Simulated scan of single mutants.
Amino acid sequence: MMVPKRNRRPKIVVLGGGTGLPVILKNLKAQSADITAIVTVADDGGSSGTIRDYVNVVPPGDIRNVLVSLSDLPRLQEEIFQYRFDSNDHFLAGHAIGNLIIAAITEMKGNVFEAIQLLAEMMRVDGQVYPASEEPLILHAEFEDGTRVSGESKIAHDRKTINRVYVTPTETNHDAKAARQVIDAILEADMVVLGPGSLFTSILPNLMIQDLGEAVVNTKAEVVYICNIMTQLGETENFSDADHIRVLHKHLGNQFIDTILVNTEHVPEDYMDKERYDEYLVQVTHDFEGLRNENCRVISADFLKLRDQGVFHDGEKVVEELLRLVFGAKN
């Protein structure tokens, strides 16, 4: 990796989806990084899934949250964009206004990639936001018992051990592809960050797009994985940090993760609201020997943030380590 000089904004590509991604992006933006966010398009649940069923667009939920995290809009306009209709409003129940806007502009332009760039300009986004693919994808899982299931929202349902996941376009017979801008951003980056987010349903759906996965393997950038703090129901039950890396390396057939960020701070007993955060189980265990066997540099520290009886990454601390890495302060 060519280390950027401190008078140049480091080019950092972040791949993923879910609630963890905007936290990292917001803190990278605060440190003036040159950010490209590449967002998962295989979500079929909630408002995103419903819109996807009625309008042939990529699911907009994660894209909406990423746009807001990088936006310079006034607070009120952000709140309007994020507003979700009450469940009593039967026609629009559960839909976020931003999801409807993304779907409308995509239909108007006939291309989700162009629609997101237009919306990013309108929202004064500092950085680039790209969908991992320009068409909606279906995420499939094959379990160790040989059974299969299709649909991101169904994968964790039976709590089976996942052998592998893969993606296919929803309506065509060709393989999923990433836009040229996505590939170029990865190959020209100083750092590529994976996560935090659900391993099988937020991180891997991006990497299973063949040309995108190949770009991550072949980039000269430092590839960093931000390991989840908690194991996840039906996905990573009983996982260690090394298990996360083994799964990533197995899927791409290459030991491509250079560095892993691991939280070592203990979550207090009975802190989490188990009903509100019912998909998160126990803390991810540590297997530092296993990580060394995967040729991973380990940065272990207190990355924990406790808030609203939930467990999160401290975005400021994570980004501090990422910038230390990208500027070559780590040996």
Rank of each mutant, 00 (worst) to 15 (best):
N293Y: 03
E316W: 06
Q283D: 10
R307L: 10
D287Q: 03
G310P: 06
H286F: 05
V311E: 01
G310C: 08
V319Q: 00
I299D: 02
K317A: 14
S300L: 09
D314N: 15
R307T: 14
V282F: 10
Y277W: 14
V319I: 15
V298H: 02
E289K: 07
G290F: 01
D302V: 14
L304E: 02
L291M: 08
H286L: 07
V311R: 02
L306F: 11
D278Y: 15
F303R: 00
D278P: 07
G315Y: 04
G290K: 02
R297M: 07
I299L: 13
V282H: 06
E289S: 05
L291Q: 01
I299P: 02
R292I: 09
R292W: 00
H286N: 06
D278Q: 13
F288I: 07
E294S: 08
F303W: 08
V284N: 01
L281A: 12
V318I: 15
V319D: 01
H313A: 05
D302Q: 08
E316H: 12
V311C: 03
S300T: 12
E320G: 12
D287V: 12
I299C: 07
G315P: 03
E321L: 13
L306R: 02
D302W: 11
G310D: 06
N293E: 07
R292H: 05
C296L: 04
D314S: 11
S300I: 09
E316Q: 08
D302L: 12
V284T: 11
E321Y: 14
D302T: 14
D278M: 09
K317D: 07
G315A: 09
R307A: 11
N293V: 00
K317W: 10
K317T: 14
V284I: 14
Y277P: 01
V311Q: 00
F312Y: 14
L291V: 08
F312V: 12
F312H: 03
K317R: 15
D278N: 15
Q309M: 10
D314F: 07
D308Q: 08
D287W: 05
R307M: 11
K305W: 08
E321W: 13
L291P: 02
E320T: 15
E289V: 12
N295P: 00
G315S: 07
K317I: 15
C296G: 04
R307E: 14
F288A: 00
K305F: 09
N293M: 06
V319K: 00
Y277K: 04
E316L: 09
D278C: 13
